[in-house]
């Protein structure tokens, strides 16, 4: 039982990080029908920028103020980078065949990844340990750390906030409208370009928070980590139903839990294989993902 609960805590923690990153994929796909392969690399970049702010700007001070500054500045910078990415790599190809945009996304991913390598070097960098107090509680054999509580709490808060924003506000209605039919949305007076900029801001910012969480939780950051986490988040988005915002949240959590339990009860060597087997099974029985709705294909 202890082991089960411990794996549950482990799974929820990594699941919430997957979910945050998955939101970036799913929102962009929802509106633009484009898989933003460079998203994972923005996540990696967030970790490096956070580290640079910590060492260069804050002089390695471990205070609450530092944490706030790191999160605020990194999120801002990555949001801006996301907008820039859309302007440079995707907007010129808006009317081009779908494949061109996908290739452009892959290219952007390589550019960012190699950019990180050139700026910060190919070696693993190490995120500070004591930025978040390393307090742990032992709840009847289950160990929960303060950092895990922060990650889980903040992720849930951000996801609920995003859900309310998309479902309950006018701007959210505009996002939903653009994702259903861009031309109709334009005819209704919605500035679709602005919507796309908005989703890149939100998606990249959430990805930045996810990247900082990954860096804080695992501490070792490498220039190519975006590929790994990007892939997982992408799978999470598909499992939940790509294009569907609550779907990405559910998908992320599910993937985290699944990973933890497979590693815990079967073998960690098989965790990846089982993850992708699950993906295939879900795609066979529910091609649109768990929360995805069946929509008639436009011809």
């Amino acid at each position: 039982m202890d082991t089960f609960l411990q794996q549950l805590v482990n799974g929820l923690t990594i699941g919430s990080m997957f979910a945050l990153v998955a939101l970036g994929y799913t929102m962009v796909f929802g509106v633009m029908k484009l898989i933003n392969f460079a998203h994972g690399d923005l996540v990696a970049m967030a970790a490096f920028i956070g580290l640079t702010i910590y060492t260069q700007v804050l002089g390695q001070a471990n205070t609450l103020f530092s944490v706030l500054v790191i999160f605020a500045l990194t999120t801002l910078i990555i949001a801006f980078a996301g907008v820039l990415l859309e302007r440079i790599a995707y907007r010129p190809l808006r009317r081009a065949p779908r494949l061109s945009a996908v290739v452009s996304a892959l290219g952007a991913s390589l550019v960012i990844q190699n950019g990180i390598m050139l700026i910060w070097g190919p070696r693993m960098k190490i995120f500070p340990e004591s930025l978040i107090p390393s307090v742990t509680w032992n709840l009847g054999g289950v160990v929960v750390s303060f950092l895990q509580v922060v990650i889980l709490g903040l992720s849930c808060f951000l996801m609920v906030a995003l859900y309310l924003y998309v479902e309950k506000t006018r701007a959210g209605a505009a996002i939903r409208a653009s994702s259903i039919n861009q031309d109709a949305a334009k005819l209704m007076g919605i500035n679709v370009n602005r919507i796309i900029t908005t989703i890149f801001i939100i998606g990249s910012a959430l990805g930045a928070v996810g990247g900082l969480f990954i860096a804080l939780y695992y501490r070792g950051i490498t220039f190519n980590m975006g590929w790994n986490y990007g892939l997982y988040a992408f799978v999470a988005a598909i499992i939940g139903g790509i294009g569907n915002i609550p779907g990405a949240m559910v998908g992320g959590m599910l993937l985290g839990l699944f990973n933890a339990f497979i590693a815990g009860y079967v073998s960690s060597t098989w965790a990846d294989a089982f993850t992708f087997i699950m993906l295939i099974i879900i795609l066979i029985f529910r091609p649109t993902g768990i929360l995805g709705e069946r929509v008639a294909e436009k011809v």
């Binding site: 082991t3 794996q7 990954i214 695992y218 990973n259 933890a260 339990f261 590693a263 815990g264 960690s268």
Partner: peptide, 9 residues
Amino acid sequence: QNFTPILTN
């Protein structure tokens, strides 16, 4: 990076 599942085991 995530070794908690195996360590839990």
